[in-house]
Amino acid sequence: MTTEVVLKIAISGVLTGLVYGLMALGLSVIFGVVRVVNFAHGEMMTIAMYLVIVFFSALGLDPFIMLVPVSAVLFALGYLMQRAIINPFINRPEHSQFMLLVAVAIVMVNGLLLIFGPDSQGITTSYSFDSFDLGGVIIDAGKVYAAIAALIVAVALFSFFRLTLTGKAIRACADNYNGALVVGLDVKRLYSLTFGIGAACVGAAGTMLMIVTDVTPAIGPAYTLLAFVIVITGGLGSMPGAIVGGVLIGLTEALGGFFFTPSAKTMFSFAILVLVLPFRPQGIMGRKTA
């Protein structure tokens, strides 16, 4: 009995972790290329989550169909953000960039609060209460679908960066900024694209997360922190690292919440971060950089 419960919790932790990983992937891509730490990451995700609520209540669309429009809107948001306000900050010191994004985050959180009010909101899908029974281990169907979708998006992103010319150009910018300039790449535009792609990841992750959880405007900073923890544990700038980190943190939080108290679960992810940072500062999958 207990092993089954533990297994159930572990599996659901891994599944949620995959969605978290997708969110963190967005942050990782943005940092890896633009070298700006997006402190408004969780806030962007709450925007996506509220978009899901709006689409759901207005059109009654299934979250998996909404994946496309929500990601597109977030892509546009990210693209414009980078174009309008972040590009001038690329060469500024870190604390200046930090300030900028904190200001953006404050506007986002309170804008959402203004529009949607402080109450927690969620959606109920036809499969919200379905579950799979794997020999006594019961798993939420919604979580399984969400994790599969997250994996598909992540794979799509990997192939985009590996196979398409634009993806290669973006990787070139990340590898050598000046080299990219020399061969004539429009780095500013590619940065905007990258930020848009990162934001689209967040949009997809937010849509998936709406299947399993609710949203309030104030939840943003918590997701931002979560994304940081995942990305740094996995390796900032490493794409597989984000997914691995997401799974690790998802698993840790689920088990920590089960064996201790649920309210203390984030403590375990921070403990992992504190352990990883000194001994492997580049993260589990990160490349050693100078």
Binding site: V37, M267, L277
Partner: peptide
Amino acid sequence: FLAFRFGVSGVYFAILTIAFAEFARIG
């Protein structure tokens, strides 16, 4: 000590400080 001894700096250091504060909050 944790940060400087092991060469954690910049953004990583900032995140480490956040981690400790959050750790204390939940603690």
